[in-house]
Write a protein that binds this DNA or RNA. Structure first.
Lengths: 131, 131, 131, 131
DNA sequence: GTGGTCTAGACCACC
DNA sequence: GTGGTCTAGACCACG
């Protein structure tokens, strides 16, 4: 997996870069696209590919390590952790989506939008081009 | 409308308080729950009701004024602005929801979740209790 | 509590500064010297007192927050977290000491030192001047 | 002495592997378990037995040579050095233990643990199984 | 005033 | 080659 396939960042977003990285990696691991033992791009490599400071990458990796998603191998690049981080079944993965959907649902209710319209727009967006 | 009905805030949320206020007011105006000329709670009154620093309320009100949603009346509390801010039709209001749904859709795609499950969860959340 | 009483660091130690801070704060909370709700020195204040870069302090505070020991109050200084972090009874606190004692015990065994001598030295060190 | 009896390493420990090797060998020499002239496992042999990179073993051996603990014999494995490294009396050996005990004592004081409890735990650990 | 994020760049430890 | 730590200093968001 090349560094540019590994993650994408949006420097314009209010969400900090390091957090974008964390969330994307977590989702990829949950979806099974990243499997236990898979090597991830080195800090310097990814930093160069994304045109970001290495410390920003390092911060994200460190937090993923603390969260148990990645493991360090001293002197070598980091790998996806074995324990507790195999791909999760869809029934479990959907829980990772709940916060975003909850926020959207709250907003829709305050806007007094008909349910059908909201579901229609989401369906349309789910069919959209891969970002 | 009492101050506590006017808006609700969640101090635990990562979203800043002043932004929670702004977004809620905008949605209420768009939905027609707040109409042109309606008085809104004073800075002090709302600050006390929400147990928030008055400057935070003031900042939100100022930004809503700059956005043309509120108007300042000499000696009076602020009121909902007349121009350009009547209730919008649903077709237009749904655009205010698009960013949140887009974010959820992107996440769902990265999680490789089946469309039906995602739509099912949203439908369920839309039926939930009013927050 | 003044910043210089709050923690002490040893720049000569191989243990990174930010980690020294973390461990000391955890011990002070466990011992009950720092109680839930107590304010801690601000990042800038402590950085100046210890002659360390503010980011080093910030890193330690962030990790203590993630560990649930500290809580952020937006716009204000951080405080000792309420939940799960009241002073622990001695029976529980001693577990925090176990790793260090285990290491010493392992070394003593490899050095084939008589138990009495080892315990004697530790007793002497426990009576030493407050560091 | 087989390679696996010679030293044990813990790859999970924060202490670097090469340093674990160095300290263990020093303690074994001080205790008299390794005597002047004793052959030690070759770099390759030990590297394979411990599943560690040969360079890591080599680095440890080189440092032990620089410290005067080991000697290189042309064409042969390394041996324990004759000079200055016979077994030390207990009174001297205990100084090698002082740093670890000092660290434990400092922590105990910050945790405000009663002396008796600390000494009790250490005694119990000294009676534990050989690691 | 508070903490958070990021960049630039140095130096170290490890394998 | 790998990641970790620290400094210097800028800029932002929040209250």
């Amino acid at each position: 997996m090349t560094p540019t396939d590994f993650v994408h960042i949006n420097t314009g977003s209010p969400e900090p870069i390091y957090r974008q990285l964390i969330e994307q990696v977590k989702r990829r691991v949950a979806a099974g696209q990243l499997k236990a033992g898979d090597e991830i791009p080195s800090v310097r490599e990814l930093a160069q590919a994304l045109a970001v400071h290495p410390m920003t990458i390092s911060k994200a990796y460190s937090m993923l390590e603390m969260a148990g998603v990645l493991e360090r191998r001293r002197g070598l690049s980091m790998v996806v952790a074995a324990q507790h981080h195999r791909a999760q079944p869809a029934a479990s993965r959907i829980e990772l989506l709940r916060p975003s959907l909850q926020k959207a649902a709250d907003e829709a209710r305050q806007l007094e939008l008909p349910k059908a319209e909201v579901l229609g727009l989401l369906e349309q967006l789910l069919d959209g081009n891969t970002p």
